[in-house]
Design a binder for these strands. Structure first.
Lengths: 187, 187
DNA sequence: AAATTTATGTCAGTCATGTTGACATATCTG
DNA sequence: CAGATATGTCAACATGACTGACATAAATTT
């Protein structure tokens, strides 16, 4: 199962009908144009926050994603990262090498399996991640401020439910479990 | 090796602190890692729905965005589309030409200003847009089903509040107004 | 010990989509 | 008419995906 690039395979979709039996009879629900387009604009501005800072570092979104997940999940293996980002070794290698060379990330051989390169963010890397997350958090807080009690939690439940469950990589599993467990510390 | 391309230039940004004077005193709000990562995964899977279908058509996400907004806002000018998508004429030109050549979109000269090329989706284009929107709508409905009364509306308010207000292009303005007014169907 | 598998790195080439800058053309406006 | 505007197009390039092949080291199996 080496290369094969899991991405092009499987994921036969069919995500809709599998959800529940009650849905099969109503296939012609009107498109939610509002949510579709709000998601487009919201996500565009959301990642735009980070883009401006990244430019000053000579980095792109790819670098952000890598250093973010490494920072958040210390000791992540390269293979894990490939699962999370759903890109190829080659694509990851380029940005990872830059982040290593410039001291945002360090590698450490695994203790039980010394072929593994466990990844850790340096202080420099963590500072960048925190800075970018701060910008995005500001935006999130601004958006959550307009919501009533309990509604912020509903937003979290909505987003979790938007995520595919059928291909849970290690990190995603951690996130969903944590969310399912806690899911109440919302402002 | 640092390629240090042009990206290492300016762009001051500072979008966070400009929000309000009350914000200046609380800079250290903890990052909302949960929402940040949920947005990443949710958006990834959300656009993934369309990606699979688009592959079969030989199209990419760029084509989807173009034909989507043309279909949704008939008579859109090229300049409007550039504003919405925030890409250059050149980038838009490539995908737009393909969509025109393959009959998903047609052009019509503006009546008051015949330099303008007003864009319209053909039946073929609309069918594609509806098909893709259907997949995404299925996902959205699945996610909204888990919410209580009024919470779906809260999700919409959250997403609207996540969008920058300070650069309202024509389409975005329409969307925000429509959402503020009726929050329902826009066609 | 040797053979195989696994985890990772790397090379060469391609593609999609973004960029800049310059220039052409048609059309509107003063 | 002169200039501004809306659009199209050309050349050149950057980023970040991709494929497929191959290299190396370490673990595992035989």
């Amino acid at each position: 199962m080496t290369d094969i690039n899991f991405k092009s395979l499987v994921r036969g979709s069919a995500p809709a009908a599998a959800a529940g039996p009650l849905q099969a009879d109503a296939p012609a629900a009107p498109p939610r144009w509002d949510i579709i387009e709000l998601l487009f604009f919201a996500y565009r501005d959301f990642v735009g926050d980070a883009d401006h800072v990244l430019e000053a570092f000579g980095f792109g979104r790819a670098h952000h994603r890598v250093v973010h997940f490494v920072c958040r999940y210390p000791g992540l293996k390269v293979a894990d990262l490939l699962d999370v980002l759903r890109i190829t070794k080659q694509s990851l290698g380029r940005v990872l090498k830059q982040l290593l060379d410039e001291g945002y990330i360090v590698q450490k051989a695994g203790d039980s399996d010394r072929r593994q390169r466990l990844l850790f963010a340096t202080a420099k890397g963590e500072a960048l991640v925190v800075k970018l997350a701060g910008l995005q958090t500001d935006r999130i807080h601004r958006a959550l401020r307009g919501l009533g009690p309990g509604e912020a939690e509903a937003v979290g439940r909505f987003l979790r439910a938007m995520i595919d469950r059928d291909d849970p990589d290690k990190v995603l599993q951690t996130i969903l479990q944590a969310d399912d467990a806690i899911a109440k510390d919302v402002t």
